[in-house]
Amino acid sequence: MPLPEPLSTPALVDALIVDPFYLAISVDFENDLPVRKAVLAAYFGYSLGEAGRTGRCETLEDRELGAAAWLLPRSAQADTQESAAKDAFLSRTLGPRGYANYNRIVDFMGPHASAAVPAQAWYLSILGISPAAQGRGLGARLLAPTLAEADAAGVACYLETFTPRSVAFYERMGFQRKAAPLEPVTNSVYEIMCRPAKG
């Protein structure tokens, strides 16, 4: 699938800019909204590309409305290469405080996810729908192909969300709440949710 970043990233920015995680990683630009949006668009563009390389990148027919990025288990070599490339991208794209925040948040969240979800679970890294298009079932349409693929493969899926109002949606998609840690950088509670393997 061709990289959808030029069309999908504005929708992701508009949908997720108030999320505590994205506020924290773009904090260096908190007084310049256009630059903050550009930095987040670059982040989402990179993340969609990573999902396309090592997971699943799903878009709607109208790619301006949103996207979903999944990361699937990858070999140690691929993980080393992708992690190094992503770190280089983040260090030159996020400001120094945002880059430090990103690493502190990820370092906190990683062990909590490992304790709450099965090994080899597929990770829904990003899901965003343009605010003007929300409430029309588009999020479910974005998730359906990869969830069906995971069901056929007999693997679990998981996600993390800082957005309380999204929990009910994910529950309708078969995800179950597993833990709700308080993340110290954002001082926000987030939900770890897992969708069990079928079969």
Rank of each mutant, 00 (worst) to 15 (best):
A88K: 15
R92N: 09
S91D: 12
A85T: 10
E82V: 10
W70R: 06
P73T: 05
T93K: 14
A78P: 00
T93R: 15
L72M: 08
E82Q: 13
L72A: 07
E82T: 07
P73W: 02
T93Q: 12
S75A: 00
G66E: 06
F89D: 12
A78T: 04
K86D: 12
L90M: 14
A84D: 14
F89P: 04
S75C: 01
D87V: 05
L90Q: 10
W70I: 07
S83L: 13
A68W: 01
D87W: 05
T80K: 06
P73N: 02
A68P: 02
P73D: 00
A67G: 07
T80G: 08
A84M: 11
S91H: 12
S75G: 06
S83F: 13
D87H: 10
S75W: 01
S75K: 03
R92M: 10
A78G: 01
P73E: 00
Q77G: 05
P73I: 01
A67L: 10
E64P: 00
L90N: 11
L94P: 06
S83H: 13
A84T: 09
A84G: 12
A84K: 15
D87L: 07
Q77N: 07
A67M: 06
F89L: 05
A78K: 02
S75T: 05
Q77R: 13
Q81F: 02
F89Y: 10
A88G: 14
A78D: 10
L65I: 04
R92H: 09
S91N: 09
G66R: 06
A76M: 01
S91L: 13
L90A: 15
L65G: 00
S75V: 00
L94H: 09
K86V: 07
A76H: 04
A69G: 11
G66V: 03
A84Y: 04
Q81M: 10
L71K: 08
L94F: 07
L72D: 03
A88D: 15
F89N: 06
T80P: 01
T93C: 05
D87C: 03
E82H: 11
A85P: 11
D79H: 11
Q77S: 12
Q77A: 13
A85E: 15
R92T: 15
L65S: 03
L72P: 01
L65C: 05
S83C: 11
T93N: 12
A76T: 03
S83K: 15
S75L: 01
E64Q: 12
E82M: 13
E82C: 08
A88N: 14
A88Q: 15
S83A: 14
R74G: 01
A84P: 06
A78S: 04
A69H: 03
L65Q: 10
T93P: 12
L90C: 11
G66D: 06
D79L: 10
S91P: 00
G66M: 05
S83W: 09
D87F: 05
S91A: 15
A88M: 10
S83G: 11
D79F: 12
E64W: 02
W70S: 04
T93L: 08
Q81R: 13
E64F: 00
P73Q: 03
L65F: 02
A67S: 09
R92V: 13
S91Y: 02
L90Y: 14
Q81D: 12
A67H: 08
T93E: 04
A67Q: 07
K86M: 15
A88P: 09
A68V: 07
